[in-house]
Design a protein around this nucleic acid. Structure first.
Length: 496
RNA sequence: GGCCCGUUGGUGAAGCGGUUAACACACCAGCCUUUCACGCUGGCAUGCAGGGGUUCGAAUCCCCUACGGGUCACCA
């Protein structure tokens, strides 16, 4: 059996998209599962749309996700180069073969002529398709066009009256009539190949065995099969996954803002790569048998479980709520150290701490993050969540004011202040517990009547994580200052 | 418009001719907790797009319709 080789072949026109990431992931998993190779090839023939650092950005994003390649532009490989624009000589060779065998021909139509033709067809309600007007040009006619200064593009001569059957791993047999396919351009006038031609040459030469991609390529497949045939290559196994839809059930457009679409945006928000991988793979794929009841899978498990046959035919809606849940699950399962490490840049960016926190301060940050670890959907949330630790005075919510306007509040707070000021012991959660006990004894207030006023006065909120730990992290001075401030300004605070 | 693909609860989905149609997210309730979050328990969802067949029996097989999507580029 030949070695499995798969590839992800993005064009460097933007950031790594969740759809592209999923495609890459499927290819990666399939290669790994079969002990094969995964290749990243750059399809950069569309010069106009290429973005300068898109290639680098996309590859970084893939690497971040843990999707590692065996051959590509950076590490090289037996079929280098891995950028289309560096493979022009190869396309040239195969193009010549097609022209020599009359399977391709020069087309002198201008863009304007083609547009006009197309418009006319559309207006007549006919399927837009190249008319074939340059298909049978005589030599004289060709020379005449050349004299006019026209440089031809090269079209592939699509055979008439044939049925092309695509053997698709996920969809079964899909048939297309060649009569519905117009002669398509395989090389532009300036010598650059078009996608359909480049992929075929590249996939064939790179010995790709399985082409896994999104459904939008399904109708390209018969064209490619025709090219494989004309060039004498054996086509790979195809597998077309369905599209990922936005919450409205529409195809995601890059401009769609209802959903975050790029991998690096998730990275920047503090999503974990494992959870993204886990989430993405489940969008249009499900494991077989009893494993279908689970949803958290490590990369190793995925490599073990993944099969193309289980890729879904039906489109999947991207549910960011579920992604959040999954990310939260991974954050909870992560070490506090890791989450702290991820949280520091966010806190630093918000001006709360220094990027290079060390020693005691770093320990403090770690405890702070620990307070919120289990409720983080993504790490960036740490900034808003911890806001109250970084301000001098508490900002009182309406609910807090409500609590603070209750009976015995001043009494409780005053007693707590006295306890704090008269205590010499280290300010630890245990110690705070003792002090609050003493307040309870002194005032007779307990439970909610004790804790809520204290929480509200110190934090300005009626909700929040463990109060003793929170106060300890805030520091004794700050706690006392806030309590006194409350006592001093009580009428004002409550009436604001 | 032609061609192609798809359609299981709000969402991801299992299901492969006989099931009370899994599981998970979301949602609701209870428990836990000083509160929130987490966690646990339970519930809801009145789900197989609709219509015809085939069959003793259909979410599962066939046909039609509807709806959604893809594609028909000198974009990939």
């Amino acid at each position: 059996m030949t070695k499995v080789r798969t590839r992800y072949a993005p064009s460097p026109t933007g950031h790594l998209h969740i759809g592209g990431a999923r495609t890459a992931l499927f290819n990666y998993l399939w290669a790994r599962k079969n002990g094969g190779s995964f290749i990243v090839r750059i399809e950069d023939t569309d010069l106009e749309r290429n973005l300068s650092d898109a290639e680098k950005k996309q590859m970084e994003a893939l690497k971040w996700l843990g999707i590692e390649w065996d051959e590509s532009v950076d590490v090289g490989g037996p079929h280098a180069p891995y950028r289309s624009m560096e493979r022009l000589h190869l396309y040239e060779t195969y193009l010549k073969k097609l022209i020599d065998s009359q399977k391709a021909y020069p087309c002198y139509c201008t863009q304007e002529e083609l547009d006009a033709e197309r418009e006319k067809q559309l207006a007549e309600g006919v399927a837009p398709k190249y008319s074939g007007r340059c298909r049978h040009l005589s030599n004289e006619e060709r020379i005449a066009f050349e004299k006019e200064g026209r440089t031809p593009s090269i079209r592939f001569r699509v055979p008439e009256g044939r049925t092309i059957t695509v053997q698709d791993e996920v969809r079964g047999e899909v048939r297309f009539e060649t009569d519905g396919i117009g002669d398509f351009i395989i090389q532009r006038p300036d010598g650059r190949p078009t996608y359909n031609f480049a992929v075929v040459v590249d996939d064939a030469l790179m010995e790709i065995t399985h082409v896994v991609r999104a459904e939008e390529h399904l109708s390209n497949t018969p064209r490619q099969i025709l090219l494989y045939e004309a060039l004498g290559f054996t086509p790979p196994v195809f597998a077309h996954a369905s599209l990922i839809l936005n919450p409205e059930g529409k195809k995601m457009s890059k401009r769609d803002e209802s959903i975050i679409q790029f991998i690096d945006q998730y990275r920047d928000l503090g999503y974990l790569p494992e959870s993204l991988v886990n989430f993405l793979v489940l969008l249009g794929w499900a494991p077989e048998g009893e494993k279908a009841e689970e949803e958290i899978f490590s990369k190793e498990e995925l490599i073990d479980l993944f099969t193309l046959k289980r890729v879904s035919k039906a489109p999947a809606v991207f549910d960011s709520g579920k992604l959040k849940w999954m990310n939260n699950a991974y954050i909870k399962a992560s070490s506090l150290e890791r989450i702290t490490e991820l949280a520091i840049p966010h806190l630093a960016k918000a001006g709360r701490i220094s990027e290079t926190v060390r020693g005691e301060e770093r320990e403090w940050v770690k405890r702070l993050v620990g307070l919120y670890q289990e409720q983080l959907d993504y790490v960036a949330q740490i900034v808003d969540l911890t806001e109250m630790f970084f301000r001098d005075e508490a900002a009182y919510s309406d609910e807090a004011k409500q609590v603070l306007s209750g009976e015995h509040v001043s009494e409780v707070i005053a007693a707590f202040v006295r306890q704090l000021e008269s205590s010499e012991e280290a300010f630890t959660p245990d110690h705070v517990k003792k002090l609050l006990k003493a307040v309870q004894k002194e005032t007779g207030q307990k439970g909610k009547n004790l804790f809520m006023p204290v929480r509200a006065a110190v934090t300005g909120e009626v909700h929040g994580p463990d109060l003793r730990e929170s106060m300890t992290l805030l520091g004794k001075e700050k706690v006392i200052a806030r309590l006194k401030d409350f006592l001093d300004r009580k009428p004002q605070i409550l009436s604001e």
